[in-house]
Design a protein around this nucleic acid. Structure first.
Length: 906
DNA sequence: CGTCGGTCGTAC
DNA sequence: GACGTACGACCGACGT
């Protein structure tokens, strides 16, 4: 290659199309298609990395007719309009090109080809070597000793020699070849019946079209060909003209404009972030200069006082502790940040990591460490008025955790105005996690120090209190710093997305309410749990023996794989269904229940399984989780897990404690109140169907709820065309299944299975349902239509969930999204209501100075612990607050029961 | 020895 | 393939 300056001329339009068609179904979480943008970007990056061009320019076609349309009105007339998915990506592609500092050339009336053709001519005149970056064969006509084609996607170069070799003609002859052959994609006719092969042959023989026609009579070919050429003479010359790239468009001759500058890495990083090109984003953020960080460790009371006095608002706070569970955690240090890249850490309770070392060394080592930390009591006393001031706003990442930890040290934090974890969740509740590390990467492109990096993991893991202060400082400061920075970005997004009201009126006020419930915990009868475990174990031992006797061998009953082999291979019982991932035979409840008709083993297995479930998941696990000092169970309510807005509960999950059968009830009985107190459960009755009635404005549903009818009986009457008085328990049960199914978007198949009826019959029921509940029918249709349009659904209080698959071409995938579209507004609105009710109840209990306290929330139920003398007052209060939480077109109804254990209260 | 996907079962 | 939302126990394959 020549050493002279090289100009890269990039055929932007061609790459836009190629990238769009080469990559399928790529989009970011906001539903923006990004396939073309991605392919285009990769092409550009390859060009920049492989060729390191000094001069480059990008060319695009411009909308509107060109001179080719003037001479041939059918030019490109067969082209379908640009797909919407491609059009929306063009602004992004242009932004990327701009951020890469590549000049763009467009000119009305000309295509990219003509501009590139013109510039190769200018470049040659100015002593430049040209590389046309394209995959389009039309450009071969421009190739000469100073101009080649390079296709980054195939990494293939075409020069004069390769064209001669490949085609057997000179580059300039490509014009004549294409003129004869035409081009279907551009609707250039050429000579019908003459394809590329024939055209090549003719051109290599005669040189050009003119020569062919001049020598038509001497043509050494068939008569048919002769006629084709003769009949389409005009068309051949017209086509030749159409495929000829114009090389004298009026443009600036100053190639200095194309001198490459450094890309704007910051802008690129921001673009890649929005497009969610994770790997590229990371690369470009890493290329940015790292801002100077100011992370300090404060140990002197005077210094701490000074910094606290200057603390600007809002500030981010983060606590470091000895445990992931706030109820078991001891405070080790606290970090604050009120300016980006600046944070400070106050170590409070770091200890020597290794006791042996402490003993070996002289005792003043440990006193060094003590001296290097301020007195925890003194620091907390200084912090208390700030943290408890509701007018001093605080932000945090999972700030409920910090609230609980601090509460144990006598600080009841107030003014918690923003939680970055919750904000991230509200912006996209479908996301897997909302950890600070993910938020830092997504929003700031920053890779955080991992907790494990500091404490180690597995067997080698140490407590945070055992981490060196020097090691702790950057970690702890970073958490506060990142939280504050993320707050800045997330706050704007929350506002922009219209989620601020939800954040301020529901999610943030809920934080201290949940925290107090977690701290309160619930009492369990440990002795009874222990007895239950024991009796379950005894029965399991017995059944295990029977199972092994019947099976004729011992095996692991808990292994569905081994069980499947026994049932279906050894005993040759009929296979009911396979497991989803082809791993083997299904042995679930339905299968075993069916098999129980013909063999004694399945029933034994079912019993064994049921007992094992209760023991391992509940009676054993709950005992483990009794707090060593409160003797109560403190679950974690997670506010940022579910896609619909519900809370979830873990460690232990108190939202799936059994209730349906006798043994299940016995587990609920172990949840008890304090002596002299009762448990009081307040349940929303049919809250989801009431929300459906409201949203669908369905006449029958509204009437039924307004009259406080039994909704399942009413549905039975409607669906089975009977008077309510004639509805049997069985019919009511079936109607109940239908009502549930509606909320979940159930199909006939599942209903048929549920009710053990034919699919046809199930379909009839569903048809009957929608015929009667016509409001529900149109609500479902409207909701799906709206979801299609907006790509998301929302609850009554404005909680949103994106449904990217709602327009999927795969009917299965789309069906799934459609059912989510139906269920999410209903389930999510119910979640909104119970959250709001909890906030209101908490406030009311305080205002009424009642001792009663909220313990748990289980989706449509709130469980209270109430002193006996407050039962009536609490019953009235809960009914009032919960039923009045939101004004619907139907009344909300709350059922309340009270008892000496959770089973009785229900 | 830890991680992770699969299967199963509990709740609303 | 066919009913939404969770948590978690257990198994077994796989990687360190």
């Amino acid at each position: 290659m020549t050493k002279s300056r090289t100009l890269y001329l990039i055929d932007g339009t061609a790459y836009l199309y190629r990238a769009f068609h080469a990559i399928r179904n790529l989009s970011n979480s906001k539903g923006l298609p990004t396939n073309a943008t991605y392919g285009f970007t990769m092409m550009l990056l390859k060009l920049i990395r492989d060729k390191e061009p000094d001069y480059a320019a990008m060319f695009f076609d411009m909308k509107g007719p060109t001179f080719r349309h003037e001479i041939y009105d059918q030019y490109k007339a067969n082209r379908p309009p640009m797909p919407e998915e491609m059009a929306v990506q063009i602004p992004w592609i242009k932004k990327i090109v701009a951020a890469m500092n590549i000049p763009v050339v467009e000119k009305q009336g000309y295509e990219a080809d003509d501009l590139i053709g013109t510039y190769t001519r200018i470049a040659k005149a100015q002593g430049f070597f040209s590389v046309m970056v394209t995959g389009d064969k039309d450009f071969m006509q421009l190739v000469d000793r100073d101009c080649v084609i390079w296709d980054p996607m195939k990494d293939k170069t075409m020069d004069v020699d390769s064209i001669r070799n490949d085609l057997g003609i000179e580059p300039i002859q490509v014009i004549d070849m294409l003129g004869l052959a035409g081009d279907t994609s551009d609707n250039i006719p050429g000579v019908p019946g003459v394809g590329p092969k024939t055209a090549l042959k003719l051109i290599s023989e005669y040189g050009n079209i003119q020569e062919i026609y001049d020598n038509l009579d001497n043509l050494k070919s068939k008569k048919a060909m002769h006629k084709k050429l003769l009949d389409n003479r005009e068309q051949a010359f017209l086509s030749r003209r159409l495929v000829t790239i114009e090389r004298s468009v009026e443009v600036s001759h100053d190639l200095g404009e194309f001198k490459m500058e450094k890309p704007d890495n910051e802008a690129l990083a921001e673009l890649f972030k929005n497009l969610e090109f994770r790997k590229l984003q990371q690369e470009y953020f890493e290329a940015l200069p790292v801002p100077e960080k100011d992370y300090r460790c404060l140990t002197k009371i005077d210094d701490i006082k000074k910094v606290l006095d200057e603390l600007k608002i809002p500030f981010a706070i983060d606590t470091e502790t000895t445990s992931q569970h706030p109820m078991l955690a001891e405070l080790v240090g606290i970090s604050f940040s009120c300016q980006p890249h600046r944070a400070f850490y106050i170590p409070l309770a770091h200890v020597r990591p290794d006791l042996d070392e402490l003993l070996l060394n002289s005792s003043d080592v440990s006193s060094d460490l003590l001296e290097s930390q301020p007195d925890i009591g003194e620091v907390l006393a200084m912090l208390k008025p700030i943290l408890e001031d509701p007018l001093i706003p605080k932000v945090g990442q999972n700030i409920k955790y910090d609230y609980i930890v601090l509460a144990k040290y006598g600080i009841e934090m107030q003014g918690m105005v923003f939680d970055t974890m919750i904000a991230s969740y509200l912006l996209n509740p479908s996301l897997r996690g909302h950890g600070l590390d993910q938020i830092a990467m997504d929003l700031l492109g920053h890779k955080t120090i991992k907790y494990e990096d500091v404490t180690g993991k597995g067997k080698k893991q140490i407590l945070f209190s055992q981490v060196d202060i020097e090691t702790a400082v950057p970690y702890a400061c970073e958490d506060a710093d990142i939280t504050l920075q993320a707050h800045g970005i997330l706050k704007k997004r929350i506002e922009k997305e219209g989620l601020l009201n939800l954040m301020e009126t529901i999610e943030m006020p809920l934080v201290p309410v949940l925290a107090k419930m977690e701290m309160q915990g619930i009492k369990v009868d440990v002795a009874k749990l222990h007895d239950l475990s024991k009796s379950f174990q005894q029965e399991m031992d017995k059944i295990e023996k029977e199972i092994f006797a019947v099976a004729g061998e011992t095996f692991n009953i808990n292994s569905s794989q081994q069980l499947g082999n026994i049932l279906f291979e050894k005993l040759k019982l009929p296979v009911q269904k396979k497991t989803k991932k082809k791993t083997g035979y299904s042995t679930d409840i339905d299968v075993l229940t069916k098999l129980a008709e013909q063999h004694e083993l399945p029933a034994l297995i079912l019993r064994f399984r049921s007992l094992g479930k209760l023991k391992s998941t509940y009676t054993d696990a709950l005992q483990q989780l009794v707090h060593p000092s409160t003797f109560r169970i403190h679950t974690s309510f997670n506010q940022t897990i579910t896609a619909t807005g519900r809370l979830s509960s873990s460690d232990p999950n108190l939202q799936n404690i059994p209730i349906r059968n006798e043994e299940g009830k016995s587990i609920r009985e172990t949840f008890i109140p304090e002596k002299g107190w009762k448990l009081l459960a307040a349940d929303y009755s049919q809250i989801e169907l009431r929300i459906l009635a409201h949203c669908a404005e369905d006449k029958i549903l509204i009437e039924a709820f307004t009259n406080d009818e039994d909704i399942h009986t009413r549905t039975a009457a409607e669906v089975f065309h009977a008077l309510p008085g004639f509805i049997t328990d069985e019919l009511r049960r079936q109607a109940k299944a239908i009502n549930f199914g509606i909320v979940y978007g159930m199909g006939a198949f599942k209903l048929a299975k549920e009710l053990s009826i034919s699919r046809k019959m199930a379909q009839t029921y569903i048809d009957n349902y929608f015929a009667r509940y016509s409001g529900v029918r149109s609500y479902i249709d409207d909701t799906i239509a709206q979801a299609r349009e907006k790509g998301e659904v929302q609850t009554l209080l404005g909680r949103r969930r994106r449904l990217d698959d709602i327009n999927a071409s795969n009917a299965n995938v789309r069906g799934f999204a459609e059912r989510m579209a139906i269920n999410t507004p209903i389930q999510g609105s119910a979640a909104d209501f119970i959250k709001l009710a909890m906030i209101n109840m908490d406030k009311a209990l305080r205002e009424e100075s009642m001792k009663s306290r909220m313990l748990l929330s289980v989706h449509d139920e709130i469980l209270f612990e109430v002193p006996e003398n407050e039962i009536d007052a609490l019953t009235a209060l809960a009914k009032k607050e919960m039923e009045g939480v939101f004004d619907l077109k139907v009344p909300l109804k709350v059922n309340i029961d009270c008892g000496d254990n959770w089973a009785e209260a229900h």
